[in-house]
């Protein structure tokens, strides 16, 4: 394993507070929410594992006892990703198949199944938006999510997806939330709101999953 101090990018004589600060910064940077539905999700997960392991090792060495896991942040980050939300889903089996295809990364099949459905309900629009998002078609994704939210305003999953798009892809875990092409002062205000809103949900708050 790599030197845990090197992984956290700190010197060996860093204080406990500095170690924790460095760890939290990195954990925030590589938090799964920043890579949800990204083709690089697995790389971010590996990075997160490495950071968690480094932090645990340092805490263990310093305290001289086998603890540390309780303090690590995002230790259970695989929870809810990709598969965790399936119980909340209650749609027809075709939509379920589409969700499975999206999660496998088989966008052609997902789109084929979706195009065969004539009833363009909220779920249809949400899934169409998700496929667009996976392709990098961010403007269309946002518009499909918008339609899904208009059709079913009480669905939390659709709302989270739209909020994420409305923040221009900034999650609560990204730093520099005020950076952006500042052509409208309202945007920063919205980002701050999104930040507070998300933090109030805990670290799973800004997630929107397919299944």
């Amino acid at each position: 394993m790599n030197d845990p101090y090197q992984v956290l990018n700190i010197s060996r004589d860093a204080s406990d507070a500095e170690v924790k600060k460095a760890y939290l910064e990195l954990a925030r940077k590589y938090h799964p929410d920043n890579y949800h539905d990204s083709p690089l999700e697995d790389l971010a997960q590996e990075k997160m594992k490495e950071i968690n392991a480094a932090y645990e090792q340092i805490t263990k060495e310093r305290s001289g006892r086998a603890s540390g896991s309780s303090a690590s942040y995002g230790g259970s980050y695989s929870y809810g990703y990709g598969y965790g939300g399936s119980q909340s889903y209650s749609g027809s089996s075709v939509f379920q198949q589409i969700r499975l295809a999206i999660n496998r990364g088989d966008l052609t099949r997902a789109e084929g199944l979706l195009n065969a459905i004539s009833d363009h309900n909220a779920e249809w629009n949400f899934l169409k938006g998700t496929i667009c998002f996976r392709r990098g078609w961010l403007d269309e994704a946002r518009r499909y999510y918008q339609t899904a939210c208009q059709m079913d305003p009480n669905n939390a999953e659709y709302r989270q997806a739209l909020n994420y798009m409305e923040s221009g892809g900034q999650t609560a875990y990204q730093q520099g939330g005020t950076f952006g092409t500042d052509c409208d002062s309202g945007l920063c205000g919205k980002l701050c709101c999104a930040y507070v809103l998300c933090n109030s949900f805990g670290y799973g708050g800004f997630r929107f999953c397919c299944i």
Partner: peptide
């Protein structure tokens, strides 16, 4: 108009944020 600019900036910024997330890896 201002709203259209905001929407375009939003989608362009989103691409930049995805670049940044990838870059950090």
């Amino acid at each position: 108009d201002e709203e259209e600019k905001r929407q375009l900036a939003l989608t362009m910024d989103h691409s930049v944020h995805l670049i940044e997330s990838a870059y950090e890896l």
